[in-house]
Design a protein around this nucleic acid. Sequence first.
DNA 1: GTTATCCCGACCTCGCTGGTAGGTTTAGCG
DNA 2: CGCTAAACCTACCAGCGAGGTCGGGATAAC
Lengths: 157, 157
Amino acid sequence: MFFTTKAEYGVRLLIELGRQPQDQPISLKAIADADNLPLAYLERIAALLKRAGLVESTRGAHGGYQLARAAEDIAMDEVVLALEGSLAPMECFVDDRSDDGRVLCSHHDDSGRGCATKLLWTRVQVGVLRTLSQTTLAELVEFQSGKVPPAAAPAPV
Amino acid sequence: MFFTTKAEYGVRLLIELGRQPQDQPISLKAIADADNLPLAYLERIAALLKRAGLVESTRGAHGGYQLARAAEDIAMDEVVLALEGSLAPMECFVDDRSDDGRVLCSHHDDSGRGCATKLLWTRVQVGVLRTLSQTTLAELVEFQSGKVPPAAAPAPV
DNA sequence: GTTATCCCGACCTCGCTGGTAGGTTTAGCG
DNA sequence: CGCTAAACCTACCAGCGAGGTCGGGATAAC
């Protein structure tokens, strides 16, 4: 399993926000009801998105959440990173974050028979990161409206 | 974390086998010592690779394991699939295996606001599968011998 | 001041990962 | 013929993180 439900719920949450009219905050309760997600858990997930600057919140009655930017400007690499914490394909990839989602293998490079699997995992990580960064929230919102066929990948690399 | 140590140890095991001269079985004990891996655990991992037809075993004294095919003909998608069981990016992707590593989302398509995240996870899965299938064991073996620079990706798709 | 909402920290349960233990076969070798 | 090195098998176990719950705050609209 690559991703946890945090990513799943978080993305769903963002999609719901993306479907909403601008500057109209929507409450987590409404989203939890609509998507049938546990409210308390969703709150913690929303906090992750807020800390990452992807959503804004309004407190008090009639408050709620809304996107901090246009859905077209929200790419999924940033989203998944915010939700999952890191995108390490393997345990040895330590969080030496270079500010894109990249993360490095911590294995001592004992100069000679170094960590050979590193090549493989790094390729996978880069591939995933590229896929995620090429998918925007706007696409997902549109997809849910039943337009874009699932096969339609973004510009084939 | 995308992959578990099963994938890590399994790939390492295969690399060691790939470094060995042809038709010369090598014992798990030797590999466990060389790579500092738990022997008992490694046995179970080797069993997975054998069941997938990736390695062959010889029992008894002076026995051991060897690759079932040339390292050039072993792609990593098959390997990781054998080791991890499936390559589902998300829990809802149920094991409806279509015989490539693909696996499908099980969410009821409640015709309308269906599983919008499915688009995203499917893209990721396809990307990972493609990356894995483009990397062969031979490449990793060569890499460990200190030749190929890490940046050298395969033919950019 | 009541109600709807965001916010926050503590807690809990369950399954899986990563491993160990202890055996049973199989086969080379003296 | 028996010793030994290896594959093979099954059961067991500890720790941890995922996935949630709970209860209470702070805040703002009405």
